[in-house]
Amino acid sequence: MIEISKFIVGFLILLGALFSLIAAIGVVRLPDTYTRNHAASKSATLGVISILLGLFMYYLLIDHHANARILLGIIFVFLTSPVAGHLIMRAAYNSGVPLWEKSVRDDLKKARKVEKSR
């Protein structure tokens, strides 16, 4: 039993670390602000959540102690990180950060032009 629980804990924490690493690689490798933000706001969220879940499982299965604060932490990260990603994205767009050259479509620019011409 303790072996299985150790396996679960180890798996979750390693998975979280892997996702965080991939998010970091993505931030370095992707070409512009927007695509970088994709990597940072998605992979980092799941990475942190699975590390916290692994920690919760460790306390629950090995120390037999349910730590509700970790669960609250998971919920807070889950709720706030998409909003943070959205706000950074919006601030970047409104301050005129250009899209990558290979971007193919920009509906928001058209909408803004229509708004201005009115």
Partner: peptide, 25 residues
């Protein structure tokens, strides 16, 4: 959330950046 991460992972770890980003309404 899990699906999104797998998709992002594929893009990041692919050897050439072949994606075509854009904004749609």
């Amino acid at each position: 959330l899990v699906k999104a991460n797998i998709a992002v992972l594929k893009v990041i770890l692919s050897p050439r950046l072949s994606m075509r980003p854009g904004i749609f309404a």
